[in-house]
Measured scan of single mutants.
Amino acid sequence: RPMNAFMVWARIHRPALAKANPAANNAEISVQLGLEWNKLSEEQKKPYYDEAQKIKE
């Protein structure tokens, strides 16, 4: 299954978030990633939607 825009973004940002929160488990990191993603504007998300579309094609 191809990655969606959030997954493209999260793949880039997960390592830094995990390093900054070494005690957090994957579920907690995923929740935090979701919160951070939701704070982004549509303009900030656009490159990730574009990349996800390329992956689908």
Rank of each mutant, 00 (worst) to 15 (best):
E28P: 02
K56V: 10
N38I: 08
A5F: 03
A27K: 11
R14H: 06
N38G: 10
K54S: 07
A27G: 05
E57T: 13
L17R: 03
K19D: 04
A5W: 02
L35A: 07
P15N: 08
E42G: 06
A20G: 05
A23F: 14
E28Q: 10
L17W: 07
P2S: 14
N21M: 14
E42C: 14
K19H: 08
M7F: 11
E57L: 12
Q32G: 03
Y49W: 06
A27E: 11
A23N: 14
G34R: 15
A5M: 01
N38Q: 10
F6D: 01
S41M: 03
S30T: 13
I55M: 11
L35P: 00
K54P: 04
N25H: 05
L17T: 02
R14S: 05
Y48F: 11
S41Q: 03
K39A: 09
A23E: 13
A23P: 03
W9P: 01
N25Y: 03
P2I: 14
L17V: 11
Q53C: 09
E51I: 15
Y48P: 00
A10F: 06
I55E: 07
M3C: 15
E36A: 10
L17A: 04
I29Q: 02
A23R: 13
N26K: 12
R1H: 12
A20N: 08
K46R: 11
L40G: 00
N26T: 13
I29P: 00
K46Y: 03
R1G: 13
K56S: 12
E57P: 07
A18W: 05
E28C: 06
K39D: 04
Y48R: 00
M7V: 08
E28D: 06
I55L: 12
K54R: 14
R11V: 13
E28R: 05
N38M: 14
P15H: 09
A16T: 09
L17C: 06
G34E: 15
G34S: 13
A27F: 13
K45M: 03
K46P: 01
K56F: 13
H13W: 11
A5E: 05
R14P: 00
A27Q: 11
Q44W: 02
A18G: 03
V8C: 08
Q53R: 14
A5I: 02
K19E: 08
L35H: 07
M3W: 11
L17D: 02
A18I: 14
E28V: 05
E51F: 14
N4V: 09
R1P: 12
G34W: 15
A16C: 13
N26A: 14
N38H: 08
V8Q: 04
L35K: 08
G34Y: 15
E28T: 08
A24E: 03
V31F: 13
P47M: 05
I12E: 09
S41K: 03
D50F: 10
M7C: 15
A23W: 14
L40P: 00
K19C: 09
N26Q: 12
R14F: 14
A16I: 15
N26I: 08
E36C: 12
P22D: 03
M3G: 05
N25I: 04
M3P: 09
I55G: 04
A5L: 01
K45L: 02
F6E: 02
V31N: 08
R14N: 02
A16F: 12
I12M: 09
N21E: 02
A24R: 07
S30L: 15
N25Q: 06
I29W: 02
A5V: 02
A27C: 13
K45W: 02
A23T: 13
D50R: 09
K39R: 10
K56L: 14
S30C: 15
P47S: 04
P15M: 11
P47T: 04
A18Y: 05
A52L: 08
I55K: 06
Y49T: 03
E42D: 13
I55H: 08
H13Y: 09
F6V: 01
K46N: 03
L40W: 02
E43Q: 10
K56Q: 13
A16E: 11
Q53L: 11
V31W: 12
K54M: 08
K54A: 09
E28S: 06
A52F: 11
L35C: 05
A20V: 05
K54N: 07
K19Y: 05
L40R: 00
I29F: 02
W9D: 01
N26P: 12
M7N: 09
Q53M: 11
P22S: 04
S41D: 06
N21I: 04
K45R: 10
Q53F: 10
K39E: 05
E36S: 05
P15F: 07
L33S: 00
S41H: 02
K45D: 00
E57C: 10
A52Q: 02
A24L: 15
P22A: 04
E43R: 10
V8T: 03
P22R: 05
L35R: 09
A10L: 09
P2A: 13
L35G: 03
S30H: 11
E51C: 14
L33Q: 01
P47R: 05
S30F: 14
A18K: 14
L17M: 11
R1A: 12
E51W: 13
K56N: 15
K19S: 08
A27W: 14
S30M: 15
N21Q: 05
I55D: 06
K56R: 13
A18F: 05
L40K: 02
H13R: 13
I29V: 04
A18P: 01
L33A: 03
A5C: 02
W37L: 00
N26R: 12
L40D: 00
W37K: 00
N4T: 15
K45Q: 06
M3N: 10
E28Y: 07
I29Y: 02
N21H: 11
A27S: 10
A24F: 14
E57K: 08
L35S: 05
E51A: 15
E57G: 10
Y49K: 06
K56E: 11
I12A: 09
Q32P: 00
E51N: 04
W9E: 02
N38E: 11
E28N: 03
I12C: 09
E57Y: 07
A20K: 10
A52T: 03
Y48K: 00
E36N: 06
A10W: 05
E43I: 09
E36I: 14
W37H: 00
V8L: 15
N4A: 08
P22L: 04
A16L: 15
A24G: 03
R11Q: 14
Y49I: 09
N25F: 03
E57V: 10
Y48S: 01
A27T: 09
V8K: 04
D50P: 02
D50T: 07
G34I: 15
K54T: 07
L35W: 07
E51Y: 14
W9V: 01
P22E: 03
A10R: 03
P22Y: 02
A18M: 13
A20P: 01
K56W: 13
M7I: 10
P2L: 14
I29T: 02
R14Q: 06
F6Y: 08
I12K: 09
Q44V: 04
P2D: 15
L35T: 07
A5P: 04
I12H: 07
N25R: 06
M3H: 09
Y48V: 00
E51L: 15
R11P: 02
V8M: 08
S41R: 04
L40T: 01
V31Y: 14
W9C: 03
W9L: 00
E57H: 12
L17S: 02
M7W: 15
K46I: 05
W9Q: 01
A16V: 13
A20I: 08
N21V: 03
D50W: 08
Q53G: 06
Q32L: 15
E28I: 07
W37M: 00
A10H: 02
E43H: 09
P15Q: 09
M7H: 09
A27L: 11
M7P: 05
F6H: 01
K54D: 05
W9R: 01
S30Y: 15
H13L: 05
N25D: 09
K19P: 01
A27M: 10
N4Q: 07
Q44N: 04
S30R: 11
N38V: 07
D50C: 07
G34Q: 15
A5T: 01
R1Q: 11
P2K: 14
A52C: 06
R14E: 06
R1D: 12
M3V: 13
A10P: 01
G34C: 15
Q44D: 11
M3R: 07
